[in-house]
Design a protein around this nucleic acid. Structure first.
Lengths: 217, 217
DNA sequence: ATCAAGTAACTGACTCGTCAGTTACTCTAG
DNA sequence: CTAGAGTAACTGACGAGTCAGTTACTTGAT
C-alpha cells in the first residue's frame, strides 16, 4: 500500500508486482479453477488485457505466483532453521515460522493448502511439499548423523525410521495450523505448544532408538 | 463384474450404481474440475444424456458420490472401532481401517484426499473431515472420562488438550497413508506400525497428564 | 406361440453460457 | 508528438445441460 487509490499509471515492474500480489489473493481465496482472469484484473482495478501484457497465460500467472510463494516460505524456513543450533530449537523454529506465516500471510497460506495436493504439472507446488518434507528429513538425519554413540547399522535403521516419521510430522503440523486458523477462539500459543510437544515426542522416541512393544495385534 | 461386457441395457438401479462407481473413479483420478460429464459417460460406455437421466447435474452427481464414500468409510470405521474394547486397540483399528481402505479402494481414497479441503458447499466431504475428527476426539475423551482417578478440573484441562491433539493425529495419519501410497517400496506394516506408535505416544502423553517442559524459547 | 401396443433404456446432435485469450483503439507522461 | 500504459469490445473453444428421436424389452389379447 505504498500509493493510494489515486495512482493510475505505474511503471512496468511495480504493476507486475502488484498484479502478482492480487492474483495470490484471488487464487488463495477462490482456488485456481474458480478464479477468472477478470477477477484478478478487477481486483487490481485494471483491464484483463493489461493483465495479459504482464503474464502470457493463466497458467503462467499461477506458476509465477507459486514460485514467489515457494521462494518466500522456503526463505523464511531456512533462515529460521539456520539461526538455531540444536535440532530441538530448529524444529520449534520451523513450527513457529509456519504459524507466523499462516498468520500474517493468510492468502499465501490458503493458496498453499488449496493447491498443495493438486498440481504436479507446474512442479512449483509439488516442489514446496517436497521441500518441506526434505527440510524435516534433513533436520532429523543431521541430528542422527552427528551423534557419535551410534553404530552405522543402527544409524541406517534410524534413517529408515526417520523417513517414515517425516510425513507424520509434516501432516500433523500442517493440519494443526489449518485447524487453528479455523478456530480463532483457541490461543495460538496453546496450539503451537501442542504441535511442538507432539512432534518432539516422536522425535525423542526416534532418538532414544527404543521401540515400544505393540499394544495391539 | 457380475455381467460381462456384452450386457447393454440394464435396469435403472444397477445402471445408477455403475455410474456412481465410474464417477467415483473419474473424480478420484482427475479431480472435480478436470472431470467432464462426457468423461464419466465415456468411461461407463454410455451417452451423456443417459447420465443426466440418473443424475440431474454434475454437482448432484458429485454430491451423490461423496455421500456414498462418506457412508462407506464411516461404516468401516465405526464397525472396526466398536469391535474393540480398550482405546489402544480402537486407535490401532482406525489406523488399520484407513490403510486397508486406501489399499483396496484407491479411487475412493484419492477422491477423499483430493476434495477434502475443498468443498464446503455440498457439506458431504466437510462432513467426512469432521466425522473423522469427531471419531478421534470421541476415542480420546471416552478414555479420559472413564478414568476414575481424575478430578473434574483435570478432566476439563484434558478435554481441552484432546481437542488440540485431534487435528495433529488426524493430519499425521492421513499424511502417512498418502505418503505410503506414493512409496510402494515401503512395507505397509512398517508404515502402519510407525503411525500407530507415533499416535500412541501423543495419546500416552495426554493420558499421563504430565507436560514436558519446553525445550526451546 | 405371436404380434401389436406400451414403456423404459438409451443416443446423436443440438443450445447456450462462460471464460481464456486477442484486437484495435484511446489517453497521458515525459 | 510519441511510446507505452491502458481499455472496451470482440472471438473462439469448451463444456454443462436439453431434446427429438431410436432401440430393446415387457405385456397381454388373440
Amino acid at each position: 500500500m505504498t500509493d493510494t487509490a489515486g495512482r493510475r499509471r505505474m511503471p512496468h515492474a511495480r504493476r507486475r508486482e502488484q498484479l502478482r500480489g492480487v492474483a495470490l489473493g484471488e487464487f488463495g481465496r477462490r482456488g485456481y479453477h474458480d478464479t477468472q482472469m477478470e477477477h484478478v484484473a478487477a481486483a487490481a482495478q485494471v483491464s484483463k488485457a493489461l493483465l495479459y501484457q504482464h503474464f502470457p497465460s493463466k497458467d503462467e500467472l499461477f506458476a509465477d505466483v507459486s514460485a514467489a510463494v515457494v521462494a518466500e516460505l522456503t526463505e523464511r524456513l531456512s533462515a529460521a532453521v539456520l539461526a538455531e543450533q540444536d535440532s530441538a530449537a530448529r524444529i520449534a523454529a520451523m513450527i513457529r515460522v509456519l504459524f507466523d506465516y499462516a498468520t500474517d500471510e493468510p492468502d499465501a497460506w490458503s493458496f498453499i493448502v488449496r493447491h498443495l495436493d493438486k498440481f504436479q504439472g507446474g512442479g512449483e507446488l509439488r516442489g514446496l511439499r517436497d521441500r518441506l518434507g526434505a527440510s524435516f528429513a534433513g533436520l532429523l538425519l543431521v541430528r542422527r548423523r552427528s551423534d557419535p554413540t551410534l553404530s552405522p547399522a543402527a544409524l541406517a535403521v534410524n534413517e529408515r525410521r526417520a523417513r517414515l516419521l517425516v510425513p507424520l510430522m509434516y501432516g500433523a503440523i500442517l493440519s494443526s495450523v489449518s485447524w487453528w486458523l479455523e478456530h480463532p477462539d483457541t490461543a495460538r500459543d496453546e496450539a503451537e505448544a501442542m504441535a511442538l510437544e507432539f512432534i518432539w515426542l516422536g522425535l525423542d522416541r526416534l532418538r532414544s532408538g527404543e521401540r515400544m512393544e505393540h499394544h495391539v495385534r
